[in-house]
Amino acid sequence: MKLIGSLTSPYVRKVRVVMAEKKLEYEFVVENVWAQDTSIQTHNPLGKVPCLLMDDNGSLFDSRVIVEYLDTLSPVGRLIPQPGRDRAATKCWEAIADGVLDAAVAINIETTKRPAELRSQDWIDRQHKKIAAALDSMNKSLDDQPFCMGVNFSLADIAVGCALGYLDLRFSDLNWRSQYGNLQRLDEKLQARPSFVSSLPPTQN
């Protein structure tokens, strides 16, 4: 398999962490989707990463789709529960963590890709409110549990860890640790895992 992505995309990192935890072999192909000569749309018509090229030359895109598929490839360390309430809860954790990413990436694009005279501070502030509300909700839901779903490490933790890592990468002045102690405790455990260490964006090394 080949994984097409960037070294700083948190969605790509989520897939890379899953592949490491599942002990799956793959080739990582770095792609800059903002470059004029990008070829990403050959495999994903939406022009986004991550994109997984499978051995039969088929492709999967969207991190949620990819990680669900990857979890079926190996019995090692199942990350998504079988259908039922726990599975739905795990996917909800992933959804809220991805919501943090969606808002954070939107802010980053607005402030780095859009001309200054066209930027909307009201819109940026709206995204920041989404991030704050999501962090508060996750912090309360985590409570004193060792992991998002209780005692077992799962996709929920991977999604949350990648979201928090992206906030550290792009919004170092946010200082979320001072407000969300439960998330800080979880993050310390996650960032020490080899799967997270090996997927750190270059500017965090």
Rank of each mutant, 00 (worst) to 15 (best):
Q121Y: 00
Q121E: 15
D122N: 03
D122V: 12
D122R: 12
D122P: 05
D122H: 08
I124F: 02
R126K: 07
R126I: 00
Q127S: 04
H128K: 13
K129T: 05
K129Q: 13
K129W: 07
K130A: 04
I131D: 04
A132V: 13
A133Y: 12
A133E: 14
A134C: 11
A134H: 04
L135C: 07
L135T: 07
L135Q: 10
D136L: 08
S141R: 13
D143I: 00
D143E: 09
D143Y: 00
D144K: 15
D144P: 01
Q145A: 12
P146E: 11
P146A: 14
F147C: 11
F147G: 08
C148P: 01
C148R: 02
M149V: 07
M149N: 14
G150Y: 01
V151R: 06
F153M: 05
S154H: 11
S154M: 04
L155W: 11
A156T: 03
I158M: 06
I158P: 01
A159P: 00
A159C: 07
G161N: 05
G161L: 06
G161K: 04
C162T: 11
C162N: 05
C162S: 09
C162G: 07
L164A: 03
G165W: 01
G165T: 06
Y166Q: 06
L167I: 14
L167V: 10
L167C: 04
L169T: 11
R170N: 07
S172W: 04
S172A: 14
S172Y: 13
S172G: 14
D173V: 01
D173H: 10
D173T: 12
D173Q: 11
D173I: 02
N175E: 09
W176I: 00
S178Q: 15
S178A: 15
Y180H: 15
N182T: 06
L183T: 01
L183V: 03
Q184D: 14
Q184R: 10
R185T: 12
R185F: 06
L186P: 02
D187C: 10
D187R: 04
D187M: 09
D187Q: 12
E188K: 13
E188I: 10
E188W: 01
K189A: 03
K189C: 00
Q191A: 07
A192M: 14
A192W: 00
A192S: 12
R193Q: 10
R193D: 07
R193K: 14
S195A: 15
F196C: 13
V197A: 11
S198N: 14
S198M: 10
S199F: 01
S199E: 11
S199G: 02
